[in-house]
């Protein structure tokens, strides 16, 4: 069982990317029915994205009313344990809340399960400057521990701006792969290759 943590601020395109990434995982896997299990973490009581994911035929477990990086951490571990024991999928994708600190989640899961957790982080090109000036600590924390960063919504900015943001992201995390994407359009399978490494 492998674990991927999908991180990124609110509205950065996590769910849009997740749909494509999950489809890629299913195509690559020989286990059609149990290849991917999603844990959808919502900080509020009401989940929205889980409905869309389920409507697309994906297996989703809800983790609501708390953030998995802090108040919901114990529930996350419990959910992963249950999934491992009952479904044992090839992949668990944890879609974090948009206000989560991903490293906290990664450390928690790795400590409990001794499984390496990959982090995919979404950055919102359209709102990068505003979000970064408003809450720099959170925004930087969401990218500096990522294995792969998708700079999304590059269609909302000009090429120079996209390149500038990409440069900032690379400065925060020189080791991460970085791809510019538009997540509500098809993403090239090559982007997901980091999952195999």
């Amino acid at each position: 069982m492998k674990v991927l943590l999908l991180s990124g601020f609110l509205g950065s395109g996590k769910t849009s990317a997740l749909l494509q990434m999950a489809a890629y995982m299913v195509r690559r896997s020989g286990r059609k029915d149990t290849s991917v299990m999603i844990i959808e973490n919502e900080i509020g009581e009401v989940g929205v994205d889980d409905k869309v994911l389920k409507a697309q035929g994906l297996a989703v477990r809800e983790l609501f009313a708390g953030c998995a990086c802090c108040t919901g951490g114990a529930d996350l571990i419990s959910d992963i344990r249950t999934i491992q024991e009952t479904v044992d999928p090839e992949w668990i994708i944890i879609e974090a809340t948009g206000v989560a600190y991903p490293l906290e989640i990664k450390n928690n899961v790795e400590a409990c399960f001794r499984i390496p957790v990959k982090i995919l982080s979404m950055a919102d090109a359209g709102r990068w400057k505003r979000l970064h000036s408003y809450m720099p600590q959170l925004i930087e924390a969401q990218v500096d521990s990522a294995d792969c960063i998708l700079l999304n919504k590059v269609d909302l900015v000009d090429e120079e701006t996209a390149d500038h943001i990409a440069g900032e992201l690379h400065a925060y995390n020189p080791q991460a792969e970085l791809h510019k994407v538009i997540a509500n359009k098809p993403i090239d399978d090559a982007v997901w290759a980091f999952l195999e490494r």
Binding site: F9, L10, G11, S16, V48, D49, K51, V52, K54, A55, G98, V99, D124, R127, R130, Y134
Partner: peptide
């Protein structure tokens, strides 16, 4: 500042629409 405001409409067990805004346009999926 809006982080996001999202809404869903669900009918039956499988069908749902999602609407969302992050402070500009409203998107619809589902």
């Amino acid at each position: 500042m809006i982080g996001h405001i999202k809404a869903y409409v669900q009918w039956g067990t499988e069908a749902a629409l999602m609407l969302s805004t992050t402070g500009s346009a409203v998107e619809v999926k589902g």
